[in-house]
Design a protein around this nucleic acid. Sequence first.
DNA 1: GTACGTAATAACAGCGTTGTCATTCGGCTT
DNA 2: AAGCCGAATGACAACGCTGTTATTACGTAC
Lengths: 348, 348
Amino acid sequence: MKSKATIKDVAELAGVSIKTVSRVTNQEGSVRKATLDKVNEAIDKLNYQPNTAARNLAGSKSFALGYVYDNPNAYYVLDMQNGILEECRERGYELVIHPCSVANKSIIDELETMVKRSQLAGLIISPPLSEMPEVLTALDKLNIAYIKIISACEVSDDSSPCVYVNDRDAAFEITEHLIEQGHTKIAFLRGDECHRSSHERKLGYLQALEKHGIQPNKSYQIDGSYSFEFGVEGAKELLLNEEKPTAIFSCNDEIAAGALFAVRLNGLDVPSEMAIAGFEDSPFSRQTWPKLTTAAQPTNEIARKAASSLIQYLASQRIRKGEQQNIPHLHFRPKLVKRESTQLLTEV
Amino acid sequence: MKSKATIKDVAELAGVSIKTVSRVTNQEGSVRKATLDKVNEAIDKLNYQPNTAARNLAGSKSFALGYVYDNPNAYYVLDMQNGILEECRERGYELVIHPCSVANKSIIDELETMVKRSQLAGLIISPPLSEMPEVLTALDKLNIAYIKIISACEVSDDSSPCVYVNDRDAAFEITEHLIEQGHTKIAFLRGDECHRSSHERKLGYLQALEKHGIQPNKSYQIDGSYSFEFGVEGAKELLLNEEKPTAIFSCNDEIAAGALFAVRLNGLDVPSEMAIAGFEDSPFSRQTWPKLTTAAQPTNEIARKAASSLIQYLASQRIRKGEQQNIPHLHFRPKLVKRESTQLLTEV
DNA sequence: GTACGTAATAACAGCGTTGTCATTCGGCTT
DNA sequence: AAGCCGAATGACAACGCTGTTATTACGTAC
């Protein structure tokens, strides 16, 4: 690899000192236009790429973000990852991904090791890890910057950067949509206990029922996990009710896909005999028949914005050390996507 | 972050020179047992983690692998990623992931920039990139070590590290399984042109037909892409044949899932009226009804072994510079998984 | 007990950047 | 034209580690 060009070569070719080159690459300012052009030209000519290692070492900071997650679902993870990556590339950061398991007792140690080893500038944490107080406390203790993505409809704690995803209102909207279709016997299949989203979504469901004067029916509410299998089991159980529900709102698309299968195996038509809605707008929801009504979560955008905010936050930290600074808070609200699984009308 | 402990602190505490500590952390040998213990004790006590940046800079090498892929499918990518990561963690390497698009003309430049920026020790490349000569040539020119994962049943080129996945024989086996079930009118839905696997699998299919004296029927062979949508379209087209096939072998599970839907929409029962097989053993294949017969690709293991071989190869390169060295070649063969979509008998 | 060879250890100079601080430049005031 | 000041630039010392080369310790043979 002829990737030899160092800052020295550039400086020499441009006829300036290495420090000036450094100023240019870091956009520090205080460089005259003429000089800047000379330097940039030299950089292009030599195809110069600053050495990350040297940069990190000398600056005793790093240009790498970490993405910490507990593999909730392949599409979500990949969407997040890609979104973060896009932002990182633009900003000249690197991404270190770190899947880990909530079940793992030593997760705190694991995170600590990771942060130290990789010299990360900051972390992006997605649920359910981002909703575990002990994890957040540990990170605070490590004194590492992070932005967490959580399910909540309002700012709950403004001391650290956060992305709020308003699952509750979106679930409310889905439930209202079902009610509009004439349903009153609406069941709910809830996802994992440890994901706040599953509770938020259920809350939205209950609020919608209440608003429309519908008595919630305990036997229509089953708790489980975010999985196809639970969808199948949960729907089967629902169908055991003497008075069967006419609609099932599933906490995510995977559950919905499972429910869909169980329902159709039972010989019921969807949506005429049973409406089914999911949540997330994952590819799943488009690969079932009929396609699933769901709530579209802009995961990729969430990821990008989260990364972007974190990077900005880090920059401001470097400048105003110690001082108070703006702590980013972002809000997202999944949007209802009406498809065939809940209504007869639409085009396919 | 009190992550202050440097090699100096450790050296001081252990009463040795920093070089000795370096020897210990790098397992260079030539350290007396007593000294080694002292040093290790100090490392533990200070919770010392070598600084990656300094390490890379001083050694002018790096401990990071890159995983380059063109997002073929979420489950595959994630399996690969996790496998590589597991190995990396054990060996103290980092992983930089790099999704990119085959369609992108400047992909070569992109790779070059990435390699330079991230100071990568080596690359792991999966299909279809690993099967594009121009990409491999570019990497050779960059003089970066890499291991490629390709679809092939025998060693084709022994000059660079390679993982061979024998799709052909696995496809042969699946086809034979269908023939054993009494099928002779077997259709084939092929995946993307640019993936060698799609051709290899088709070859296996054709070879099985030939072995059993079945005349291949051109109108039973449709080319498309690795997607659910193509599965739907392809199956529809197949059903237009006057003499319909009785079995569809789909190039992967996604296609199979699509085909399954189209077939059932057409009112045909699976497997009694139409058998359907997939390939890959992705979660898809277990979340359809009936479950899909498929070929299990040990993606996670492939990834681990690939990473492991690459790391070993890099190490041997460092030692025997210039000299001839063992170039790793690994072979994998997906295994037939019989499920309900091709046979009536089995338990659900 | 001396000499010798090898294994174990240390000293020290980089690696390619950035941070700090000193210096020079260019324009503006007087 | 001298004096001044902020902006632009440069010199040089870190950053924490590894590679290289020099030095010391230890065991063995005579």
